[in-house]
Simulated scan of single mutants.
Amino acid sequence: MTVDVQRQHLVYKGFTGPELRGVFTPDRVTIETRNGDVVAERTAPREAFASHGPDTPWDELHVLYFAGYAMWNYLTAPYLLTRPGVVVQELEPLQDTGEDWRRLRVTFPDDIATHNTEQVFYYNAAGLLRRHDYAPDVLGSPAAAHFTEKHVTESGLVFPTHRYIVPIQEDGTALPEPVLITIDLTDVSIT
Score class of each variant (00 low, 15 high):
A143F: 00
P178V: 10
V166P: 06
L75N: 13
S141F: 05
A67W: 08
L91W: 04
G36L: 12
L94Y: 06
R42V: 04
H115V: 06
F66Q: 07
H132S: 03
T25S: 13
L129S: 10
P26Q: 10
H132N: 00
Y69F: 07
V179E: 08
V88Y: 11
V38M: 00
D37L: 15
T25Y: 04
V5N: 06
T186D: 11
T117D: 07
D187N: 15
L139D: 03
R102T: 11
H146K: 09
G156K: 08
Y164N: 00
F49W: 11
V86E: 07
T153N: 09
G127Q: 07
F121Q: 05
L91T: 04
E99M: 10
A113V: 00
A126Y: 03
T148N: 00
H146R: 11
D96Y: 08
D111W: 15
D111E: 15
F49L: 11
D133N: 04
P57S: 10
L157N: 10
L64E: 09
E149V: 09
A125K: 12
Q95H: 11
Y69N: 01
F108N: 03
R163P: 06
D187T: 13
S141W: 05
F159K: 10
L175E: 13
Y69V: 04
R131N: 01
E32M: 11
Y123H: 04
Y65F: 13
S141G: 03
P84R: 14
P18H: 15
L10F: 09
R46H: 03
L61C: 06
P160K: 15
T117A: 07
I183D: 05
T148F: 07
T2A: 07
V38L: 10
D59I: 02
D96M: 09
W58C: 06
Q6P: 03
R105L: 10
G53F: 06
P109N: 04
L20T: 10
E99T: 15
V152N: 10
V11K: 14
G156E: 04
T97F: 13
P45N: 12
T114F: 06
I112Y: 05
L157S: 09
G36T: 12
D187G: 13
D111V: 14
H151M: 08
A77K: 05
F147A: 02
V152M: 10
G14A: 12
M71K: 05
Y134H: 04
A145K: 08
Q169N: 13
V11N: 14
D184M: 11
Y123F: 15
N124R: 05
P54C: 02
E32R: 13
P176N: 13
A145D: 09
V39F: 03
N124W: 03
L64A: 03
A40T: 13
T97H: 14
V106G: 01
P109M: 00
L91Y: 05
K13R: 15
E170A: 14
V29A: 13
L94T: 14
T182P: 08
P142K: 00
P18K: 15
P78Y: 00
P26H: 12
L81K: 02
V23I: 14
V88H: 05
R21V: 02
R130T: 04
